[in-house]
């Protein structure tokens, strides 16, 4: 039920969307579209592709809403659908390939980790990663999936997922060091 001057309650939002009310659907879009687009932009650097994936994910959410059990987090359910939609775009365009780059596994200092980098700058670093590195890093480091889950989602082995994650981390460390002008200590 839409209350003027008050935000939509999540239960009412779901209820109205299930009834197919246009107001509930638009309220859901306004509430979650920015967050969903942030997820899509981590997987798909191109903004147009990311927006298309976000809209497709939103439509899929409306379609699969009757299957949603209100036991877990609605936002977590939305995130999973959005991630799967982004991975589906990558799969359809065959953009997932796992490069083998010679990146030195360097020890990063605590100082580097505590750098005051903005989210936009970190996002650019993630977007700069190769697709395989970026996808595994996003799934493992940010989304919290295990290597087993990542292997199942991407159709690769767990060792491939681990190696891709390790190389992604090393590359990001180099990027952060270059960005801060700090020379990384040689191993």
């Amino acid at each position: 039920m839409l209350r003027l001057g008050q935000p939509y309650r999540e239960e009412d939002l779901i209820h109205d969307c299930l009834k197919g009310k246009r107001s509930g659907q638009e309220a859901l879009y306004k509430k979650y579209s920015a967050k969903m687009l942030g997820i899509c932009l981590r997987y798909l650097p191109d903004r147009t592709e990311a927006e298309d994936a976000m809209v497709s994910a939103m439509v899929r959410i409306f379609a699969q809403l009757p299957t949603f059990r209100q036991e877990g987090s609605f936002e977590g359910w939305i995130r999973r659908i959005t991630v799967n939609e982004a991975l589906g775009v990558l799969r359809r365009k065959k953009k997932i390939y796992f490069e083998e780059m010679e990146v030195a596994d360097r020890q990063t200092s605590e100082r580097n980790a505590e750098t005051n980098l903005e989210a936009d700058e970190l996002l650019k670093m993630v977007q700069f990663l190769p697709t395989g590195y970026r996808t595994v890093f996003n799934l493992y480091a940010i989304e919290g999936y295990s290597h087993k889950e990542i292997a199942e989602m991407l159709g690769v082995t767990e060792s491939t997922s681990k190696s891709q994650l390790n190389r992604a981390r090393n590359l990001l460390k180099e990027m952060i060091a270059k960005y801060q002008g700090v020379s990384l200590p040689a191993l």
Binding site: K35, A50, F137, I142, L172
Partner: peptide
């Protein structure tokens, strides 16, 4: 490193 990226990008939003 993971915490840095997770903290900054997990709930990051972009206006469509």
């Amino acid at each position: 490193l993971d915490d840095l990226f997770r903290a900054k990008l997990h709930d990051w939003e972009a206006a469509p």
